[in-house]
């Protein structure tokens, strides 16, 4: 990994992600130090005192967006972490052990890949009440199948490769092979998947919030969109309340998608054709 020149895609992705990170850091400053006061007038357009105007309650939109970055990003990262962990373990087990375990896990993966995730998440979140951790949990528990499938394919490929055969030939145990050899080898794929899943998790969280399933005391970008939709900001033509959060969501997800796709390209090609690169 170290010392590899990042591709154009990865550079752009990293740039966008660092922009969001700056936003997160600034959110502590903006929220607590340069506090934009509540304006008296709701829906006041962008001005000197409120750079992005105010919403229906007279809250400063810029402050809301900076604060929302924390929620969206943390749900994205933690949710993706959970889903990637589940997917990796299931995929590695099913690909390496094979047999009936593979059949069962493969069947489960296939099931959850087809059932549309967002509607199921909506129902579950509605039942569980949409707190921060519930949203993380629901995203983590339902977004693993694609990861599992990719890891399984890679593990399957490794399992039949010569070096694993050689390991069996010197009496290495299955557990040893999975943890010392299979996992390090699928790490690249898993990393790419993790980054891509962050973008998916951010989009999913935004979708859930948009439909009204988020913690209103801790608003994310999607929540701002939800309120803009339900409280008539659109009909008022108050574009400053809903255009900026949408741009923030798109920018963040684009950043992670670009980085993830770059990583995916780097690790998809076999070790042979990677030669000049590492």
């Amino acid at each position: 990994m170290v010392g590899i020149k990042p591709s154009f895609m990865e550079t752009t992705g990293l740039l966008l992600i660092s922009l969001v990170l700056v936003m997160v850091i600034l959110s502590f400053v903006v929220g607590n130090v340069i506090f934009y006061p509540r304006s008296e007038s709701p829906y006041s357009p962008p001005s000197q005192s409120n750079l992005l105007g105010t919403d229906d309650l007279g809250d400063d939109v810029l402050t809301l967006i900076f604060r929302g970055s924390r929620v969206s990003l943390s749900i994205g990262i933690i949710g993706s972490l959970v889903s990637t962990l589940i997917g990796t373990v299931i995929g590695a087990l099913s690909g390496f052990c094979g047999g009936s375990l593979d059949d069962i896990l493969g069947w489960l993966t296939d099931l959850f890949i087809v059932i549309p995730a967002l509607p199921l998440m909506i129902v579950l979140t509605a039942y569980l009440s949409p707190s921060f951790w519930n949203v993380v949990l629901v995203i983590g528990l339902l977004w693993w199948p694609t990861t599992a499938r990719l890891v399984r394919a890679r593990a399957w490929q490794l399992r039949s490769s010569t070096f694993v055969e050689g390991l069996i030939g010197i009496d290495a145990s299955k557990i040893y092979i999975v943890f010392r050899h299979i996992l390090p080898n699928v790490l690249g794929v898993v990393l790419a998947r993790f980054v891509l899943s962050i973008s998916h998790a951010i989009l999913l969280e935004a979708g859930l919030s948009f439909i009204g399933l988020s913690d209103p005391t801790n608003p994310s970008w999607g929540t701002i969109l939800h309120f803009a939709m339900t409280r008539g900001a659109l009909l008022q033509g108050a574009w400053w309340t809903f255009v900026p959060p949408g741009i923030a969501i798109s920018m963040t997800s684009l950043g992670f998608i670009l980085l993830g796709m770059g990583l995916e390209q780097r690790y998809r090609i076999g070790p042979k054709s990677l030669e000049g690169k590492i």
Binding site: G169, I170, D171, A172, N185
Partner: peptide, 30 residues
């Protein structure tokens, strides 16, 4: 331990993520 196998294609015979020293010492460790 007594019967050892040398595979056909050396490119794929060792874990690509491991250093050669570790791969070489691995049989002893196992």
């Amino acid at each position: 331990m007594r019967v050892q196998y040398i595979p056909q294609c050396p490119d794929l015979a060792l874990d690509p993520t491991w250093y050669l020293y570790d791969s070489l010492a691995e049989p002893l460790r196992i």
